[in-house]
Amino acid sequence: WIARINAAVRAYGLNYSTFINGLKKAGIELDRKILADMAVRDPQAFEQVVNKVKEALQV
């Protein structure tokens, strides 16, 4: 799951650890299995999560 998430978030200019930190700051409580599945099956929803994380990180 970690490898999938890392590959997906790198397309948005983040790395895995920064993304996970941003999830916590944004108050998003999705587990890694769901995030990895979302990255593959629903990229639009995953992009929305990434955008919320970037807002929380102020990137």
Rank of each mutant, 00 (worst) to 15 (best):
W1I: 15
I2K: 10
A3F: 02
R4E: 15
I5E: 00
I5F: 05
I5T: 01
N6C: 14
A7Q: 15
A8D: 01
A8S: 04
V9W: 01
R10V: 10
R10D: 05
R10G: 10
A11G: 08
A11Q: 13
A11H: 09
A11V: 11
A11L: 11
Y12P: 00
Y12D: 01
G13V: 01
L14W: 04
L14H: 01
N15S: 12
Y16E: 02
Y16M: 01
S17H: 10
S17Q: 12
S17Y: 15
S17P: 06
T18Y: 04
T18P: 02
F19L: 03
F19W: 03
F19V: 01
I20H: 04
I20Y: 06
I20C: 11
N21C: 12
N21S: 13
G22I: 02
G22M: 03
G22F: 03
G22W: 03
L23D: 00
L23S: 02
L23A: 05
K24P: 04
K24T: 07
K25N: 07
A26G: 07
A26Q: 07
A26D: 01
G27D: 07
I28Q: 05
E29K: 14
E29A: 14
D31Y: 08
D31L: 07
D31C: 09
R32A: 13
K33T: 06
K33C: 08
I34S: 08
I34T: 13
I34A: 08
I34P: 05
L35Y: 05
M38E: 02
M38P: 01
V40A: 13
V40R: 07
V40I: 11
R41G: 12
R41C: 15
D42M: 10
Q44N: 11
Q44R: 11
A45K: 12
F46V: 01
F46R: 00
F46C: 02
E47P: 01
E47R: 11
E47A: 12
E47I: 06
E47M: 11
Q48I: 14
Q48D: 09
Q48C: 09
Q48P: 02
V50M: 04
V50P: 00
N51I: 14
N51E: 10
K52Q: 09
V53Y: 01
V53D: 00
K54W: 06
K54S: 06
K54C: 04
E55G: 10
E55F: 09
A56R: 05
A56E: 09
A56H: 08
L57E: 04
L57K: 03
Q58S: 14
Q58M: 07
